[in-house]
Nucleic acid binder design. Structure first.
Length: 269
DNA sequence: CTCGCCACCTGGGGGC
DNA sequence: TGCCCCCAGGTGGCGA
């Protein structure tokens, strides 16, 4: 489900209403997410939320003693609701802030809710992550250097969080289309020019998706319950057989690492 | 190291 | 209708 734009849209939707508020309760209806939900969420009750951060696709609820790390997996969403709203199926975890509640819904239960004392970046899941794609770091020279000893297809290297965080299956396909690069190209075969084009394409794609509120295909909804609409602007993702928006050739689909990759064989070489 | 593949889990859609 | 198989936005962990 959520890639960087969807997670960031969620963060921006929640932060203005929650930062500075006191956590007054927690509810764990089903702790069996990808990892067991951190026991004793209760110990956070009474603490003030100092900030709501993000690292890659992880949301960081920052308290004085550490951070509650939340990952939305494939099908997770966080909504801000009245605390009186009845929970429904797949509503696994609540963070209650007085009259309001942040509710995690995650049908597939690939998400995670983990407590990390101290600095969130010290958590083992976050420690090995690559740089943020919307930071100053991502540019042509950096991408060129980062791909030199990577023989895997560029699509899979883009989706590897140790290379770069935040780019998942949708935005990898979309970024490669915008850069005019075939997703099967070995990463190390990209020259400086194509690396520069791809770095810019990743930034442009993620920023355009952010502006559109992310992509809503199945499960993703914003914290206020509304949908993102970037899916209406997808050039290739989910468009197999439909005409390329640039050249009209039919969009093709192939499997890479057991994931679908969509591309235009005329625009991408 | 890196790569390629499997696993986790539920639900929706298509084909028969 | 019902059943079965495939597919889905992520990513840790395994063996090669």
């Amino acid at each position: 489900m959520p890639e960087l734009p969807e997670v960031e849209v969620t963060r921006r939707g929640l932060a203005p209403d929650l930062v500075g508020c006191r956590l007054t309760g927690t509810v764990v209806r089903n702790p069996a997410l990808r990892f067991p939900v951190t026991p004793a969420l209760d110990s956070l009750v009474g603490q003030d939320l100092l900030g709501l951060g993000r690292r890659g696709k992880y949301l960081l609820f920052e308290f004085d003693a550490g951070s509650l790390i939340v990952h939305l997996g494939m099908s997770g969403s966080l909504r801000l609701l009245s605390a009186a709203t009845p929970a429904e199926k797949h509503d696994h975890v609540d963070l209650v802030f007085g009259e309001r509640v942040v509710r995690l819904r995650d049908p597939r239960r690939f998400g995670a809710v983990l407590w990390q004392p101290g600095r969130a970046e010290d958590h083992p899941l976050l420690a090995g992550l690559g740089p943020e794609p919307l930071s100053e770091v991502l540019d042509g020279p950096w991408l060129y250097q980062a791909t030199r000893n990577r023989s895997a297809p560029i699509k899979q290297v883009l989706m590897d969080a140790r290379t770069l965080v935040g780019v998942g299956n949708i935005y990898a396909s979309e970024s490669l289309f915008r850069a005019g690069i075939d997703p099967r190209t070995s990463a190390r075969c990209l020259g400086r020019v194509r690396c520069a084009r791809l770095a810019q394409a990743v930034r442009d794609t993620l920023e355009a998706a952010l502006v559109a509120g992310g992509s809503t295909l199945r499960d993703f909804i914003r914290s206020d319950g509304s949908s993102g609409y970037f899916q209406l602007q997808h050039f290739v993702y989910g468009r197999e057989g439909e005409p390329c928006r640039v050249c009209g050739a039919p969009i093709r689909c192939l499997r890479q690492g057991n994931r679908s990759s969509f591309y235009c064989s005329r625009c991408q070489r």
